[in-house]
Simulated scan of single mutants.
Amino acid sequence: MTILHLGHQPADLGGIEPALMSTDPAGFDADLDVNAVKFTGGRSHSSAFSLAFPPPAGDLWLQVRLRAPDTSSADFYYKDVSVLAFRDASGNTVAELRGRKSTPTIFARASGDTVTDGANGIDKGTGTVHWINVRVAVGADITIELHDGAGLMSSATAANTAGKGKPVSAVFGNTNMHSHFGDATWYYAHIAVLDGTPTIGRRFARQVPGMAGAHSQWAGTLAALGDGNIATRMSSDTAGQRQSATLAGPAGPSGAAIAAVHIKAVAQAGTSGPGSLAGFLRIGGVDHDASAAALSSAVPEQVIFSWPQNPGDGAVWTDATLPAEIGLLSAP
């Protein structure tokens, strides 16, 4: 499984400020996280936000939990709107989820040589929770599929002889989300983007560093690694230094199958010193390192390290064998 993006925190998304984060349990799955992105506004509300990711090698899959606006007349969009647009490296829109003014429906649109709209769609509903899963395939044709949970609700295909590229960003239009004259409230959470692996049926539980672990060689405070603020950091100026921590927060539904354990960091190389980063798991007093990833010195970037099996014994993960600590290793 190749992960291109994980998360809905302000550090994960462009256009989201800390003030938009809410702990209202209506907005998120408490088995997976502790907050959601919350919007409240009238029918002309407009607050687009976005995420960027590397181009996928295979089909792109995106998942997001959307809780629709909560007013009785919020079923309908105020105008025809772009709910979610996928764009290539040249800024071309290759596929979209659209909202119809005349019905409370979210449907698929492929934007190749011509624009093709899919039939049917998701009935947005009032205060309804949708686990939206979207597949976008770009080649000689552009195909988009919209799933509500596991159900295929709308799909569209358009020829792509003009050669539009694979998506590298997704923009949530978040505009005119309802037709009600007064304010309504809606939420986004649990955003994931995978390369070639369906998001249907998958969930990602987000934990953050808790207490200091066996290694404390980096400068700064451990709280900086879990506060979601890029401006607060820990740092290492010498290759081979380790920083580890126990974990706090939701661990996912008890007894559910665990496909993998991932460490996500937002990191940046300095102008001198170590230029790479590796994640590691500490199990039974032993550190298990992932391959190091080179970092940019220009801007912070998301880096993800993954373990599909327990590196201690090669077995599948269970609730009982999850690592006691996770950590980061500065590398040359």
Results as ranks from 00 to 15, higher is better:
Thr318His: 13
Thr143Gln: 05
Leu225Phe: 05
Leu329Asp: 06
Val208Thr: 14
Val64Ala: 15
Asn176Arg: 12
Arg135Tyr: 00
Met1Leu: 10
Ser154Ile: 01
Thr199Phe: 04
Met211Tyr: 12
Tyr188Ala: 04
Ala19Glu: 13
Ile263Trp: 11
Lys124Cys: 04
Leu281Glu: 01
Ala224Trp: 03
Ala214His: 11
Ala140Leu: 04
Val316His: 13
Asn176Glu: 12
Ser306Phe: 00
Asp123Thr: 11
His262Trp: 13
Arg206Gly: 06
His215Ala: 13
Asn229Met: 10
Gln268Asp: 08
Asp59Cys: 07
Leu146Gly: 03
Leu277Gln: 02
Gly91Lys: 11
Trp131Glu: 15
Asp148Trp: 03
Val208Ser: 12
Thr161Ser: 15
Ser155Leu: 02
Phe76Ile: 09
Leu152Cys: 10
Gly220Leu: 02
His147Leu: 01
Asp227Phe: 07
Tyr187Met: 06
Asp148Ala: 07
Pro104Val: 02
Asp70Gln: 08
Phe39Glu: 08
Leu20Lys: 09
Ser155Tyr: 04
Ile142Phe: 01
Gly127Glu: 06
Leu60Asp: 03
Pro167Gly: 02
Met153Trp: 04
Leu84Glu: 05
Trp131Thr: 15
Gly312Glu: 09
Ala19Val: 12
Val81Arg: 08
Gly252Gln: 02
Asp141Tyr: 02
Gly15Pro: 01
Ala108Trp: 01
Ser44Ala: 15
Pro311Tyr: 06
Arg135Lys: 15
Ala11Met: 10
Gly139Asn: 09
Ala108Phe: 01
Glu301Thr: 14
Asp88Ile: 06
Ala239Leu: 05
Ser236His: 08
Gly139Thr: 04
Ala320Phe: 04
Ile3Ser: 03
Val37Asn: 03
Trp186Pro: 07
Gln243Trp: 03
Ala48Val: 09
Ala292Gln: 10
Leu322Arg: 12
Ile326Val: 15
Ala259Phe: 05
Trp186Phe: 14
Val81Glu: 11
Asp33Thr: 15
Gly127Val: 03
Ser297Phe: 07
Pro55Ile: 01
Asn133Ile: 02
Ala290Gly: 10
Gly314Glu: 01
